[in-house]
Simulated assay, not measured.
Amino acid sequence: MLLVLTDEHKEHLAFLPEVDSAVVGEFGRIALEFLKKGSNSKIYEGAARKLNVAVDTVQHGVEGLMYLLTESSKLMISEVDFQDSVVVLGFPEELNKLLLQLYLDNQKEIRNILSELAPNLPHYHNLEWRLDVQLASRALRQQIKPTVTFKLHLEQNGEESAKVLQTDPATLLHLIHQLEQALGEMKTTHCRRIVRNIK
């Protein structure tokens, strides 16, 4: 699978051939640090002064490199696919090899960082439901008031919890219809392409 870079990312990475290979390696190290600890504008300013360029140029170069490495690691792109993805940038062969080495050296660490950044959400464990129908009352003899009660069992970090939800059948039918529409949308070519790129 090839990594498709937008024109904006290509423009951000266009700065890399203008600097020494040691600087590109340092940008790779900075990109990893930013993934772990977040961005730091002082590092951009110091690098911009040393290279005698604008701070934005350095920031865009590091962020473009970070995007290239994280997306490649997320998609688990092979060596050949990575090289083919980088070739479209028009970089010299030496820089392409340096980028490939950066990717290969840091792929596992980047994947570990990305897995730690992923939110830990509760997930479905079990569902119980009950239909309650009030057949009649002295005040309203002709009206029927059905309600559907759900007990949703969730699991997070090995701990179970339960949520009780209650609705009327009309709202439940509307919800079912919306979910069926969403599932139908997932079968479209556009959604399949997005899901394939997310994995």
Results as ranks from 00 to 15, higher is better:
Lys37Glu: 11
Leu69Phe: 02
Leu32Ser: 04
Glu33Leu: 11
Gln59Glu: 12
Lys37Trp: 11
Ser73His: 03
Gly46Cys: 12
Met66Arg: 14
Glu63Gly: 14
Gln59His: 11
Lys74Val: 05
Ile30Ser: 02
Ser72Trp: 01
Ser41Arg: 15
Tyr67Ala: 14
Leu75Trp: 08
Val80Ile: 12
Leu65Glu: 10
Lys42Gly: 04
Ser78Thr: 08
Gln59Ala: 05
Tyr44Val: 05
Gly38Met: 00
Ile43Lys: 04
Ile77Pro: 15
Ser73Gln: 06
Glu45His: 08
Leu69Ala: 14
Phe34Asp: 01
Leu32Cys: 05
Leu75Phe: 13
Ala48Lys: 03
Gly38Ser: 08
Asp81Phe: 02
Lys42Pro: 06
Met76Lys: 09
Met66Pro: 07
Met76Val: 11
Tyr44Gln: 06
Ile77Thr: 11
Ser73Leu: 02
Glu71Pro: 05
Ser72Pro: 06
Lys37Ser: 15
Ala54Thr: 05
Leu68Thr: 03
Met76Trp: 09
Gly46Lys: 12
Glu33Ala: 15
Ala47Ile: 06
Gln59Asp: 12
Lys74Ala: 10
Lys42Met: 07
Gly64Tyr: 00
Tyr67Ile: 02
Tyr67Glu: 14
Leu75Val: 06
Val62Ser: 08
Val80Pro: 09
Met76Gly: 07
Val58Gly: 13
Lys50Trp: 13
Glu79Tyr: 03
Met66Tyr: 03
Asn40Met: 07
His60Tyr: 08
His60Val: 09
Ala48Arg: 01
Ile30Met: 04
Ala47Met: 09
Ala48Cys: 03
Ser39Trp: 10
Gly61Ile: 00
Asn52Lys: 13
Ser41Leu: 06
Val58Leu: 04
Ser41Tyr: 10
Ser73Val: 01
Val58Phe: 00
Val53Thr: 09
Glu71Lys: 09
Leu65Gln: 04
Val58Lys: 01
Gly38Glu: 00
Ala47Thr: 05
His60Leu: 15
Asp81Ala: 09
Val62Asp: 12
Gln59Tyr: 07
Gly61Trp: 00
Glu63Gln: 09
Asn52Val: 08
Thr57Arg: 13
Asn40Arg: 04
Thr70Lys: 06
Ala31Gly: 01
Leu75Ser: 13
Glu33Asn: 15
Thr70Ile: 02
Glu63Cys: 12
Met76Ser: 14
Phe34Arg: 06
Lys36Asp: 09
Glu79Ser: 07
Leu69Tyr: 02
Lys37Tyr: 15
Glu79Ile: 01
Lys50Asn: 07
Glu71Leu: 05
Ser39His: 10
Ile43Cys: 08
Met76Cys: 09
